[in-house]
């Protein structure tokens, strides 16, 4: 469970986020939407205190994140940044790195068990012993998500997990996230650009505008008026095959 209250963040005296306030239940996905540069990624990094906010409280699973040590936060919050580097190491080792917050002096039996379980769960067995510097963008993204999962987090933060992926891979990745969230009853916060993907996979939405929460809620807030005010684009929102679909007019 996640609850963020009155979060302010500024960088070099410039206010980026102002009084951001929202909550999220376990087993649910929240999509953070809004134009480029509005502070979507910054908000994710505030939640796991990579950028400690100026004021505000962030509660994950009943604990105040800002009061925790860095590695304690990493035991509770898994973070998949937009890009990660790929050296000459196997996917297994890259995923094992996610156990870092839990590992004492050496890798234990449990660490390997968790890693192998996540590998199976995400269907990465074939890739496990391949070097990640020889992998495609989609494969690498699945490895990065697996790395976050072996942290055994209560909350997953994903920064544009589908950017630079083709349509099929976009759907695969988000389906994986959806399944993980439901199976393990964790929460996930995902920044996204594609409104239609968000409508398909998320339960809740936040529209950020000028550093503030412009709208927060379920499918009912994704309406043409909101989209026009946030993105400045006229759209229609139609229902198709049980999903809401956003169609730009331009």
């Amino acid at each position: 469970m996640l609850s963020v209250t009155e979060l302010d963040f500024s960088y070099n005296n410039r206010e980026i986020l102002n009084q951001v306030h929202f909550g999220l239940k376990p087993g649910k996905i929240l999509a953070i939407l809004g134009p480029n540069g509005v502070g979507k990624s910054t908000l994710l990094r505030c939640i796991n205190a990579i950028h400690p906010p100026r004021t505000g409280t962030i509660i994950v699973d009943g604990e105040e994140v800002l009061a925790l040590e860095k590695h304690e936060i990493a035991k509770r919050v898994g973070y998949v940044p937009q890009r990660s580097e790929a050296g000459r190491l196997t996917a297994y080792d890259a995923i094992l790195l996610g156990r870092k917050p839990h590992i004492g002096w050496n890798v234990g039996e449990k660490d390997r068990r968790v890693v192998e379980s996540v590998i199976r769960k995400l269907g990465l067995e074939e890739l496990a012993l391949r070097h990640i510097n020889e992998m495609s963008g989609g494969e690498l993204q699945r490895v990065a998500i697996a790395r976050a999962l072996v942290q055994e987090p209560k909350l997953l933060l994903l920064d544009e997990p589908t950017s630079s992926l083709d349509l099929k891979k976009q759907l695969e990745i988000l389906r994986t996230v959806r399944q993980v969230v439901e199976d393990n009853n964790v929460s996930a916060v995902i920044t996204m650009h594609d409104l239609n993907l968000a409508l398909r996979f998320a339960d809740n939405y936040i529209f950020l505008k000028d550093g503030k929460v412009f709208a927060h809620g379920g499918d009912e807030i994704v309406v043409p008026e909101t989209i026009e005010q946030v993105y400045g684009v006229a759209t229609s929102v139609e229902k198709f095959n049980g999903f809401h679909v956003v169609i730009p007019h331009e």
Partner: peptide
């Protein structure tokens, strides 16, 4: 060694794993 592994995976990933 784990800190360097984390940094090799990118600064953002390392920070997400609790590395200073």
């Amino acid at each position: 060694r784990w800190n360097y592994n984390a940094i090799d995976a990118g600064d953002e990933t390392a920070k997400g794993l609790g590395v200073n």
